[in-house]
Simulated assay, not measured.
Amino acid sequence: MNDRVKVAIIGSGNIGTDLMIKVMRNSQHLKMGAMVGIDPASDGLARAQRFGVATTAGGIDGLIGLDVFADIDIAFDATSAGAHRRHNEVLQAHGVQVIDLTPAAIGPYVIPAINLEAENAANMNMVTCGGQATIPIVAAVSRVAKVHYAEIVASIASKSAGPGTRANIDEFTETTRAAIEQLGGATRGKAIIVLNPAEPPLVMRDTVFVLSDLTDQEKIEKSIARMVNTVQSYVPGYRLKQRVQFDVVSRDSPLNVPGLGPLSGLKTSVFLEVEGAAHYLPSYAGNLDIMTSAALACGDMMARRRIAAGIARGGMEAM
């Protein structure tokens, strides 16, 4: 029998609903406690009710009013950066550990392939979909050589970008840029998101450009391959679209990097594709799938730590 820690999901939209299904199907240590929304007619709340999960359309205040709230140890917030700030204050006051799927970046940035084992904060920020897909590649290059500049371009299907994503474009680019530097190890980072209106919708595509010190190309390629395998362990649809490309930037023809000036070295170009698992979202929505998959990995790690320490607000349940 496995002990389970009860969780609440705040946000009954696409991301929250997909995460709920992942918790119920794939989690090793989590159990759904409550689904929280603000639209009584949302499909997410309706599905949760059919699954026998406690629901409320009263937002964070409605969650606190549920009987099951006393047993909630971890809450996933899949709303917006603005709403998350209040949600976090309320949840922290009740001793609930928070996993933030918005770009609010209140807590430390967490990307499972890079630093999940090292973080155990009261609020864990999952960066952004583009960050989850691309920053592991920057970190893989950083393991081999000093990275001076890293630029990522995340292209997602327009249909997979809901109101929360569209309302947080500025936060997306800033949070991703900061995480490229903090987790990826780049001296300077840049992030761009593209909403692709193509029909039929295309799966998530990501491009990573890294300028590093000149070093052994084979070592970088092997480091990237190991990192791709690590990400695939929790996001099976994550893959290289083609072989890693290299260009030597000579001192005679340096690249002018804003804020850093002219630089030479090795330019590494990596092209990625992320296909979703289609638990709730369509398979082209890899941008949403990688966020929910990363959040699930984070939640399971939090639960394992609580189980090992015997810490639970409402007592752990045996399944």
Rank of each mutant, 00 (worst) to 15 (best):
G259L: 14
V53C: 10
Y280I: 05
T55A: 10
T175I: 03
F172G: 05
P103S: 05
G164R: 04
I99M: 04
I111Y: 10
N26S: 11
N120D: 14
P201N: 12
D43A: 15
G107R: 03
M319H: 13
P163V: 07
P201V: 15
P201M: 15
S223T: 06
K6S: 02
S42A: 14
E117Q: 11
L101F: 09
Y149F: 14
G62T: 00
L281G: 02
Q49A: 12
V210E: 00
K222D: 02
K222I: 01
D71A: 04
R306F: 14
G315D: 02
D170R: 15
A57F: 08
P108E: 00
V90K: 05
T230C: 13
N2C: 08
A225M: 07
A309S: 11
S212M: 08
D18H: 07
A191G: 04
H84E: 03
R313C: 01
A81M: 05
A48C: 10
E218N: 14
A167P: 12
A277C: 06
A70C: 03
A154Y: 13
Y109K: 10
L63K: 06
R4S: 03
A54H: 06
V274Q: 05
A297R: 14
L255P: 00
P103M: 05
R25V: 01
A93R: 12
P197C: 10
V144R: 02
P136L: 01
G286W: 11
P163W: 03
C298M: 08
V5C: 01
D170G: 15
A34W: 05
D3H: 13
D213R: 09
L272Q: 03
V257E: 04
Q232P: 04
A150Y: 13
A57N: 11
P282T: 15
A167T: 11
K190I: 08
G37C: 08
F271P: 00
T175R: 03
